[in-house]
Structures are given as C-alpha cells and as structure tokens.
C-alpha cells in the first residue's frame, strides 16, 4: 500500500485516474477499522485532507460550501451553520466520540453509504447537492442520488466528492434530526428522522418534509407530508397522519438492533417529535 497526500484537486484526480486500485479517504474512521477486521487496503490511498478545497467551510449570499473532508467537529463548532441548519449539525455531532468527531467527515459518512449514516436524512431533507470531480471535470448532483444502497454510491471509477452545497435557508424555516439508539450516546441509529419545516407569521405550516434513515437500503423521503401539514398548526391529528405515512414508507430489516415492527413504530414516533421540534425552531425565527 502506498499513502499519498495530494495538495490540489487536480493532483488527486490524476492519482485516481492513473491507479484503478486507488481509494480516497478523509478521517479513516471506517477505513482503518475495516482493515483491522481483515479487509485488504487498496494499493494506493489518497488522503484528501491536504487539499484546501476539501477542507473548506464557508458561506456567502449564494449558500454554504462544505468541503467533503472537513471534520464533523469543525461543522459542529461553526455557530452560523448551527443556527441556519441546527438539524444537520445535531446529526453530524452525533457521529461518535470527540476522537471520532475530530476525524470523521461529511464526505466519508455519506460515501461509506451505511443506511444508518446520521448525516444522510438531514442532507437529503435539506436538498443538499454533491459536487463530484474527476479528470473529466466537475458535476453536481442532488444528494439523494449519491447513495444507491448499502456500501454503494453512484460515483464512477476515478470520481470523488469534492464538496457539498446547501442553499441559505429562507426566513421561518428550520430543520431537526432525531434518532433512536439503544444507548443514549456512542451508538448506531436504529431509526433516524430528519424534518424540514417552514411556517408563516401565524405559525401555520407552509412547507414540510421528512426523510428517514436506517429503515431501508437508502434514506427514504416520506411522501405526502407537506400535503398533510400545509395550512395546519401541527395539530395532533395531522402529526398522527404523518407518523402513519412514515411507518408505511419504511422498508426495514430485522437485525440485532431492532425488528421490522419496532422500526416501523419508532419511525412514526420520531416523525411526530421531529416535525414538532422543527416547527418550534421555525416559529422562533424572525
């Protein structure tokens, strides 16, 4: 195995183009445990953390740009990101201990393509985009098109994610993320639920969406949430109908962390709670 640390995007693209057995990494928090478990490391590993663009975290009038290799800790420490995307930041901040937070990246969390990845539902519900690069140039895709299934992305050979983009949120719009884990911390989601809600001056819903994680091979955008909620004040009946939609939308598996029935039930419970939390946050915004 050869370790490489390019300092430009071009150099990284060239390394990938000239070595079919090359793989990019950022925090190595998945890569090294997999190697420890016996998986053979690729012939060439490309460390992306010396490339300034991959470590970038900035905002302007157009929106947010988050380098794919920037650590979770840096995202969590960014007070403006926390106030504009509280749900995304709470999802990212749930990934592991301080030791892991200082290494793990958004790019790695998404491209490792675990169905239980905490950042997935929040990124999808906020309609983030992934900027993908290779020697052929850049292309931008909706984040929902990045992950195809467990361990599988839509990246072609020679491609990697350079950065993520998010629009600036409109006024009185907010997101939230909740998950269920058997332990309170340092655990993997049995169900994750992200919500995005917009309200008017009177606190009535003008838009809403829910995306679930860990209940299907990829994140699941729950259909019909906006139709149930727009015009409502998030009353019990409307939220109960949303919960039922979420339970219905799951395609869960049975495993040691939870049964199908349990996951369906929890998806509904979390949907109610996460919509209420996002609605409270949206109403507090001016």
């Amino acid at each position: 195995m050869m370790y490489t640390a390019p300092v430009t995007v071009d150099e990284a693209c060239q390394l990938l183009a000239s070595n079919s057995a090359a793989k990019v990494f950022a925090g190595a928090t998945d890569l090294l445990p997999q190697a420890q478990a016996g998986r053979r490391l690729e012939d060439v590993l490309v460390d992306l953390k010396r490339i300034p663009r991959l470590m970038n975290l900035e905002v302007d009038d157009q929106g947010w740009t988050i380098g794919a290799a920037a650590s979770a800790a840096r995202l969590a420490e960014h007070s403006q990101l926390r106030s504009e995307y509280p749900g995304l930041v709470e999802a990212v901040a749930l990934i592991g201990s301080d030791q892991i937070q200082n290494r793990a990246s958004l790019g790695g969390n998404l491209c490792n393509a675990s169905p239980a990845a905490d950042s997935g539902p929040s990124m999808v519900v906020n309609e983030a985009r992934a900027v993908i690069v290779s020697t052929a140039g850049f292309r931008t895709i909706p984040i929902a098109d990045l992950v195809r299934g467990p361990g599988e992305t839509s990246l072609e050979p020679g491609e990697f994610v350079a950065e993520f983009q998010l629009d600036r949120p409109a006024a009185r719009r907010a997101d939230a993320y909740l998950r269920f884990t058997p332990r309170t911390e340092m655990d993997i989601a049995v169900v994750g639920a992200a919500a995005r809600v917009a309200v008017d001056d009177a606190g009535r819903c003008t838009d809403a969406a829910v995306v679930l994680g860990a209940v299907a091979p990829t994140t699941v955008r729950v259909g019909g949430i906006a139709e149930e909620l727009v015009g409502s004040t998030f009353d019990e009946e409307a939220l109960a109908r949303c919960a039922a939609l979420s339970s219905e939308a799951c395609r869960p598996i049975d495993d040691k962390r939870g049964t199908k029935e349990f996951r369906r039930h929890i998806a509904g419970v979390l949907t109610t709670r996460v919509l209420r939390l996002a609605a409270e946050r949206a109403s507090e915004q001016r």
Partner: peptide, 23 residues
C-alpha cells in the same frame, strides 16, 4: 485498535484523536 476505546488517544495539533485511526 478500531477507534472504540480511546486507550490510544493523543492530541494532534491540539485535537483529540485515536492514534489507531491515523496513518
């Protein structure tokens, strides 16, 4: 040696890391 236990914790540029997860 898989980043779960923290016994190998060190600071790198002031940041806490598991040295088993760093090349």
């Amino acid at each position: 040696a898989t980043g779960d236990c923290g016994a190998c914790s060190v600071l790198i540029d002031g940041r806490l890391n598991c040295s088993c997860l760093v090349f």
